[in-house]
Structure formats: structure tokens, C-alpha cells
Simulated scan of single mutants.
Amino acid sequence: MKLLRLLPLLLITAPLSAQETTRRVTPEEAFSEAAMHYQASRFTEAAALYKKTASLISDSPSAHYNLGNALLRVQTPGSLGRSIASYARAFHLAPRDGDIRHNFDFALKRAGEELIPAGTPATLWIAFHILSRTELKAFQFLFLWSALLLGTLWVIRPEWRERVGTPMAVVCGLWLTTAGWWGARAALAMKDPAIVVRMNAEVRSGPGGTFSVGFKVPEGRRVSRIGGRKGSWVEIGVPTEGLKGWIDSDALEPI
């Protein structure tokens, strides 16, 4: 699988104190060493270092993507689910990246799902998700403040009304479009999503091991945490099957 180049890093590790005997590893060093392990097919070691990199620079899609690649090659219990969680984080940060989208879909298919829902035109789905949530929110605020600025000029400078009227209408239309787009994305998104990281995880009728097993969820399946929580047990819903129940939180990885 293709390794993405790590984005420029702004994070700089703090100077070591005199008492520290072990030098801290920078994200660049961890990423470079992880890439060497990956190329040498030492996927467990690569995954550990990519995980360290992703924890240090959580907004880097490259770190999450490469962690997903390494975990997918480890092929141990839980690695498929955790690879899907990593791909999901990378996709949310960089939805236009074709490699991320392809590997995310590939891993989901191994778990019995697909990235693009059945019956949905691929082009339409990709266009709907072409902007990340951060980008969409940024455009929404940009158009809102532009509309407010033009509206202020329209009010305080009557002689400019003819010139600012059309741009103000266009910007207002763009703001309404991005606001509606944001609302549609929020409405269709899974609530508090998580990935099952345990093989055939048991979902019970109540929050505890004494409750009966209602059904089992395969590793890698996306579920929604629907609000209930008691001790280490979390209430989940499985949207694809319309089922819900309680599961041990250790069987989930939030995304």
C-alpha cells in the first residue's frame, strides 16, 4: 500500500530536563522509523510507531492513514477494527484523498460493510463529502461574515447599494448553501460513532455480563453509541441492522 508523505510538522518537543535520561522521540523520527519497519514488513513495530505519531499530531491524515495500513497488515484480533478506525479519522481530515478513500472502503468490505451505501451513486456521494467538516465550517463562517460586511456597507453607504447588492446576494446564497450542506451532513452522520475491535463482540440486553446475549457484532463494524452508559458498559445501535443493546466499552474504539 502507498505510504503518504507526512505533512509539515509544527510540533516541536520540549527541551529535556537534566533529570531525563531518555531523549524524547519527535514525530518526524517516529514516522521515519515506522516507514522503515513497514517497508521491511515488520508491521507490528510500524503500527506502534505510527500510533505514537498519530497521538502527537492528531490532525495529520497521513499519520492515521499509515497507521491504518500497518494495522491492516498485522492481522491479529482487533487489528482490522483499529485499522478501520484509523482510516475513518484520516478520511474525516482528508476526504478528497483517493488512497485514503480506497483503503477505507477496502477495510470496511472485509468487515462486511461498504463506504458508499448501496444504491447511492458514487459520484454524488463523493461530491457530498468532498469537503472535510472543518473546511465546510470555515466556508460557512467566511460567507457569513462576508454577508454581514456587505450588508453593513449597504446600510451605511447608500451610494454603494447598487454595487454591493449583487455580491451580497451571491454571498448570502453561498452561506445558505454551506449551512444547508452542513446541516445535511450532521443529520446523516452517525451519532457518536465507534468501531468494534473485538471478534464477534457480544451485545447484551442490559449493562452487565449476567444479561442475555441478544446478538453479536463482527469486528470492524461501525456502531453508534446512543447515550446509555453504566460502568464499563455502553449502549450501542447498529444502524445497518436496526439493532441495539449493551456492549463492553473495551470492545469499541471511538472515532
Score class of each variant (00 low, 15 high):
Ala14Pro: 05
Phe106Ala: 06
Leu153Ala: 10
Thr26Trp: 05
Thr123Tyr: 04
Thr44Tyr: 12
Gly165Glu: 03
Ala30Val: 02
Leu49Val: 02
Glu219Val: 03
Ala47Ile: 11
Glu219Asp: 05
Thr26Gly: 11
Val213Ser: 07
Ser232Pro: 07
Met36Gly: 09
Arg204Gln: 03
Ser132Asn: 10
Phe143Trp: 11
Thr44Val: 11
Ser146Phe: 07
Ala30Pro: 01
Ile126Cys: 11
Thr210His: 07
Leu153Pro: 07
Pro218Leu: 06
Thr13Asp: 13
Leu9Phe: 04
Ser79Asp: 06
Ala63Leu: 06
Arg5Ala: 10
Tyr65Ile: 04
Glu235Ala: 03
Arg198Trp: 02
Pro193Phe: 06
Met1Ile: 06
Leu11Glu: 11
Phe106Asp: 10
Leu6Val: 06
Ile236Asn: 07
Glu241Arg: 12
Ser41Glu: 14
Pro254Ile: 00
Ala94Glu: 12
Thr166Tyr: 14
His129Arg: 13
Ser62Val: 03
Arg5Leu: 10
Gly242Phe: 05
Ala251Glu: 01
Gly119Gln: 09
Arg82Met: 09
Ser58Asn: 08
Val234Asp: 00
Leu150Tyr: 00
Leu153Asn: 05
Gly81Trp: 00
Ala118His: 13
Ile226Asn: 04
Ser32Lys: 10
Thr166Asp: 05
Ala118Trp: 09
Leu131Met: 14
Arg133Phe: 10
Arg101Ile: 01
Ile84Tyr: 00
Gly227Ser: 02
Asp192Cys: 10
Ala30Arg: 01
Ser32Trp: 03
Leu108Lys: 05
Ala189Thr: 07
Met199Trp: 03
Ala88Pro: 11
Leu56Val: 12
His92Val: 06
Gly98Ala: 14
Arg133Cys: 08
Lys51Gln: 15
Asn69Ser: 09
Tyr50Ser: 09
Ala30Cys: 15
Val155Cys: 12
Lys137Thr: 11
Met168Arg: 13
Asp192Leu: 10
Arg73Met: 15
Ile226Pro: 03
Arg225Cys: 07
Asn69Leu: 14
Gly180Thr: 05
Leu108Glu: 04
Arg24His: 08
Pro61Lys: 02
Ala251Cys: 14
Ser232Met: 08
His37Gln: 11
Ser60Lys: 01
Pro61Asp: 01
Leu11Ile: 11
Leu150Thr: 07
Tyr50Thr: 05
Gly81Pro: 02
Met1Cys: 14
Val170Leu: 15
Gly237Asp: 01
Met36Arg: 14
Asp99Leu: 15
Phe143Glu: 09
Leu11Arg: 13
Ala47Phe: 08
Gly220Ala: 09
Leu149Thr: 09
His92Cys: 13
Ser79Trp: 08
Leu131His: 07
Arg133Tyr: 02
Val213Arg: 04
Leu148Val: 15
Lys109Ser: 13
Ala35Met: 12
